[in-house]
């Protein structure tokens, strides 16, 4: 039988998904719709967000702005409340990739959440699959939640030596 993890969730640093503040960010998509009244902006069609080595891809990315946040969305001073990505979400950093069906990111709590029938987190040859990935972007701590309690993990011996 495959290795059964004692813990339900696998904890680990996921700093790889962070961005460096000194590099430009490029967002591309087929379409962008900005809805002032609903305080939201929808990027759709081959959405890709790139900063340095970090890449996010999704079919759609919706950005929600805080309604009460004062500042008018027109002049860009409105605060962002949360962001949702869906439709084949793929996140890649220098060392890790994560894929899922849907993702959301809450600005205040800085929690990134990736869910799907199969959320796969890969680093080198280490592959972890589960049903939800929760990463705190402040601390970089990530938890991969199992589907009904069990996380499938594949570790290849060589991966141990590599990372020492």
């Amino acid at each position: 039988a495959g290795p059964a993890l004692s813990q339900d969730q696998q904890q680990g640093r996921l700093g790889g998904l962070k961005l460096s503040g000194d590099q430009p960010i490029q967002i591309e998509s087929d379409k962008l719709e900005v809805r002032e009244a609903d305080s939201m902006a929808i990027f759709s069609g081959n959405v890709s967000v790139v900063q340095g080595p970090t890449l996010l891809k999704a079919g759609k990315m919706t950005v929600y702005y805080a309604k009460d946040g004062g500042g008018s969305a027109t002049t860009g001073s409105a605060n962002i409340d949360r962001l949702e990505v869906e439709d084949k979400v793929f996140v890649k950093s220098e060392t890790q990739t994560a894929t899922g069906d849907k993702g959301s990111f809450d600005m205040k709590t800085e929690i990134l959440n990736l869910t799907g029938k199969e959320v796969v987190l890969t680093e080198g040859e280490n592959v972890l699959t589960g049903c939800s990935l929760t990463a705190n972007m402040k601390t970089g701590l990530a938890e991969l939640g199992g589907c009904g309690g069990r996380v499938k993990t594949l570790l290849t011996p060589s991966s141990q030596q590599q990372s020492q």
Partner: peptide, 10 residues
Amino acid sequence: SRRVRWLKVV
């Protein structure tokens, strides 16, 4: 990459 924050920046 300890001090870096991605989505928060975007």
